[in-house]
């Protein structure tokens, strides 16, 4: 069976439609979505309605939670006060567009989905707001997959796609209690983290949408990068009156449109 996993659509219906066409061309049997259906992009309702109409199993992303719970629910950090102000603008714009039934759809999304030995989350098994970046400590990455109870952990949130394989994990422990001492050995089987990147707000340095396909028969994982008409999406962002910087960074597939004033700044929400 071939399973397509998408994430972080962020209201970008054009990118989503192109990805769905590619999923169809690749004859995938199932689709999972890792949340962040809305935010920044211009078609939050259309995206929610598409995902809902196709009955795609979906977990709640941090932006989805934000729209449901209100701005104060967000614990995501921004690199600067300027970025935080722009994020707030995007939230308020999206909030004004959301239809009640679509907001209800986002509200009932679960935090985690499981399918046999596969686990699907937005950020990490611990939190919607944790970034499983490709460079996090190897043993920390292994712990995240082990804590999910799965062999393969699918996640989004970072908008940078990768497949990380953690093999031959072993640890030796000396345990001492008042009456005894023991030497223990632990081994972990092969575990993988698959970050599927972003459909609608890529940050891997190119504007193309990304997602992943997992083949349960061959156990192979493929990262897919899909071109689409991002230029017209950028033009629409500017026409609608959202900060032009959103269009600028979408066109470049960048995370931040500005350097951090203060890299230690934490979102006050």
């Amino acid at each position: 069976m071939k399973i397509a996993v998408i994430s972080c659509i962020h209201g970008n219906i054009k990118a989503l439609n192109e990805v769905l066409r590619d999923i169809d061309r690749n004859t995938c049997d199932k689709i999972y979505c890792l949340g962040d259906l809305v935010g920044y992009g211009l078609y939050p309702n259309e995206v929610v309605e598409t995902i809902s109409a196709l009955a795609i199993p979906t977990v709640q992303g941090c932006w989805d939670e934000d729209i449901v719970e209100g701005l104060n629910a967000c614990e995501c950090s921004y690199p600067s006060l300027l970025a935080e102000r722009r994020g707030r603008l995007a939230h308020e714009w999206t909030d004004r567009q959301m239809l009640p039934e679509n907001r209800d759809f986002l509200a009932q999304l679960p935090h985690t989905l499981k399918d046999n030995n596969l686990c699907f989350v937005h950020g990490s098994p611990l939190s919607n707001h944790e970034y499983l970046l490709p460079q996090i400590d190897s043993f920390t990455a292994l712990e995240r997959v082990l804590s999910s109870g799965a062999d393969i952990l699918f996640c989004g949130h970072t908008h940078v796609p990768y497949v990380r394989s953690l093999a031959s994990g072993n640890l030796q422990v000396r345990l001492t209690e008042p009456q005894r001492q023991e030497h223990l050995s632990f081994a972990a089987p092969l575990k993988r983290i698959v970050n599927v990147g972003s459909v609608g707000e890529p940050r891997h340095g190119r504007p193309n949408a990304t997602y992943a396909i997992y083949d349960t028969q061959t156990d192979a994982i493929v990262l897919r990068e899909i071109e689409y008409d991002y230029q017209s999406v950028c033009a629409e962002i500017i026409e609608v009156g959202l900060p032009p910087i959103f269009a600028w960074r979408l066109a470049r597939g960048l995370e931040f449109a500005e350097k951090a004033d203060d890299p230690t700044h934490i979102c006050q929400r």
Binding site: L142, P161, Y162, V163, R164, S165, S168, H204
Partner: peptide, 8 residues
């Protein structure tokens, strides 16, 4: 552990 990373 053996850590392999595949990106695009």
């Amino acid at each position: 552990l053996v850590d392999s990373l595949l990106t695009l």
